[in-house]
């Protein structure tokens, strides 16, 4: 089962990166600044498997070389991939929407500061990204809940006792 879920996560990773670079970023600001790929990574880190969430964020700038352009400095991704698991385990362990928000805001703040330090991002752009991250997280978290309910009802085969 772990192998299956890892395969699904890998496919989701590529689809979401294509979606981010090709579809989302074709739009103007503010919609174009939505960090949807990063938001899914945060969700995976918090609700799914920590190690995969961390790997998701860490390899994004490497894979993006072939797929398209992503915002921020490459080492900002590495930095949040390292701090993410620590924050999940120590501070935002509760599986609530608020904890997810707290984790995402903290990581995005680190990401913003790291990107400012290399002047990789304009200040206004990252703040717009911050707002769009919050909106997309609410949307993704509800979507995740819906998918979970749907899969429990229709995909999982319950064992008969």
């Amino acid at each position: 089962m772990n192998v299956v879920s890892t395969v699904i996560v890998a496919l989701l990773f590529l689809v979401s990166l294509f979606f981010q670079t090709t579809i989302v970023q074709a739009f103007d600001i503010p919609l174009g600044a939505t960090p949807i790929h990063l938001a899914i990574g945060f969700l995976l880190l918090h609700r799914g498997r920590i190690e995969l969430g961390s790997a998701w964020i860490a390899i994004t700038p490497i894979i993006a070389i072939w797929v398209g352009h992503i915002p921020g400095a490459w080492w900002a991704y590495i930095l949040i991939a390292i701090t993410g698991p620590i924050l999940v385990k120590r501070i935002f362990a509760k599986r609530s929407l608020l904890a997810l928000m707290g984790l995402s805001w903290s990581l995005y703040l680190i990401f913003m500061i790291a990107s400012y330090s290399t002047f990789a991002e304009p200040v206004t752009m990252t703040w717009i990204g911050f707002i769009m991250l919050t909106i997309s997280l609410i949307f993704i978290a509800y979507l995740e809940r819906y998918v979970q309910r749907f899969s429990k009802r229709f995909i999982l085969v319950r064992r008969k006792h």
Binding site: V3, T6, A10
Partner: peptide
């Protein structure tokens, strides 16, 4: 060990597809 295996598999599949 399980975490490392999962990360390895994830990287393998992603890079493989890529």
């Amino acid at each position: 060990q399980a975490a490392l295996q999962a990360i390895g598999l994830f990287l393998l599949i992603t890079i493989g597809i890529l």
